[in-house]
Amino acid sequence: MSAIVDARALVREYRMGEEIVHALRGVSLAVHEREYVAIVGPSGCGKSTLLNLLGVIDRPTTGELSIAGERVDRLSDARATDFRLRRIGFVFQRFYLMQALTARENVELPLAEAGMAGTERRDRALDLLDYVGLRKRERHRPSQLSGGEQQRVAIARALANRPALLLADEPTGELDAYTGAEMIALFERLNADGTTIVVVTHDEDLARAAKRVVHMRDGEILG
């Protein structure tokens, strides 16, 4: 299997006033196609920072990062945006759906951005909603959906452009135990259907469901 993620000696430092915060201290990680990796560790260990780098919404201070065979650590803003649109799917802890749009329109948003025509876009969005079990809720707005339903719409949105990598940041963090379990099952199904997944979580059940668990502490990967 080829490596979807190839991270080498990633360092990420932030300047907080006079002080420099070392969020990542030389992290190297490889994630292969169809893998399902959970990154766990205490708060502030750098796991979200690592996820942001993998999602190309942040740049490493030093180090090299390739996603799906493309160097992404020094992409321009425009190239990074396009890369995220076509190759990365993002699922956030707090769903972050567009409140003004319906469930279907939320899923259509990245498709429209990628230039997909109207009918094709609608069909694809409906297929994805069907996949996450929300076909019948296509016209509902986020405020009319439960937390679990919103997260499923967010997953459908993340899958819209058939990303090479699905990243999830605490996807069960805002859900109750029952809905969280549903979400874990959905991630397992996604992976079984061929999606490469990296999740950052505190949820032990979600981490257990992953095929590989990466432990982090103080900006480094343990072991």
Partner: peptide, 16 residues
């Protein structure tokens, strides 16, 4: 600002 950042994160171009 949050909504805008999410849009940017999922690949919506800046000019859009």
């Amino acid at each position: 600002i949050g909504e805008i950042s999410v849009m940017r994160a999922i690949g919506v171009r800046r000019w859009r």
